[in-house]
């Protein structure tokens, strides 16, 4: 039964990723950093990521993105996706490599935490947001350290129990060669995202972390909408 559930999950994930990539390229009006974040999160969380993309980031109609994403709840969701993409990327990479070393599960979790933190802070926060800090990388690291640390801690608060329990109880799901490994990592990422949402909301509501922004002049109303059409009855 679990095998069948995994087949359905991976099929839904493939469809979700294709949709989010397509929409990001042809309908995206946010920075490329934000688009990559949503694509990565959809790879890790499948249809759940695609659902939240539709809910919080996808431009429903030309000229509507700013208004559509204005609510703090949506800003927080976009902010969290940025964080989750960075953290989960480091965690996935570490979790894929660590089985080779046959460490204890406590050390596995510790190294995964460090990998997620390094990926999240030094690449996804500081490097990709360097434009926000006049091109000063270490200033970007310093300014984003607090938001990244508390977000990462909450993401791992959700992920660690799921990773450890499923890794121990689900025989054969320890290594990246098994589909069940990717399935249980997906479940862990979803739980991590849910647990981290409240802190993300608090950070964005208090302007301690950026939300989702439309690129300047990227989202204009479609030309047909801007010009009133002549009444055909006249």
């Amino acid at each position: 039964m679990l095998d069948g559930a995994m087949v359905v999950w991976f099929a839904l994930t493939a469809g979700s990723v294709v949709f989010v990539v397509w929409d990001s390229v042809f309908n995206g009006v946010t920075s490329w950093v934000q688009r990559i974040a949503w694509i990565l999160v959809t790879i890790y969380t499948g249809p759940v990521g695609a659902f939240f993309y539709l809910l919080a980031c996808r431009r429903p109609l030309p000229g509507t993105h700013d208004a559509f994403t204005a609510a703090t709840s949506k800003q927080a969701l976009n902010s969290e996706m940025h964080c989750l993409a960075g953290d989960a990327t480091g965690i996935f990479v570490a979790a894929s490599i660590l089985p080779v070393f046959s460490l204890t599960n406590g050390w596995d979790a510790t190294i995964e935490y460090l990998a997620g933190f390094v990926s999240g802070l030094f690449i996804f926060q500081a490097l990709m947001m360097i434009g926000m800090y006049e091109g000063h990388y270490w200033k970007a690291v310093r300014k984003t350290f607090f938001a990244e640390t508390v977000s990462m801690n909450m993401v791992m608060t959700g992920m660690i129990p799921v990773m450890l329990i499923l890794g121990a109880r689900w025989a054969g799901s320890e290594g990246p060669q098994a589909p069940s490994f990717w399935f249980h990592m997906s479940m862990a990422t979803i739980v991590g995202g849910l647990v981290a949402y409240p802190i993300s909301h608090w950070l964005v509501a208090n302007r301690l972390k950026h939300g989702c922004m439309t690129l300047p002049d990227a989202d204009k109303p479609a030309p047909d909408w801007a010009t009133p059409r002549p009444n055909p009855r006249r």
């Binding site: 920075s31 434009g131 926000m132 302007r207 301690l208 439309t214």
Partner: peptide, 21 residues
């Protein structure tokens, strides 16, 4: 090209200056 451009311009455009605790 614009979408892949500087994040800085976007933040200035939106006045998204961050606070610090």
């Amino acid at each position: 090209h614009d979408a892949a451009g500087s994040a800085g311009a976007m933040y200035q455009h939106h006045d998204h200056a961050m606070k610090e605790l």
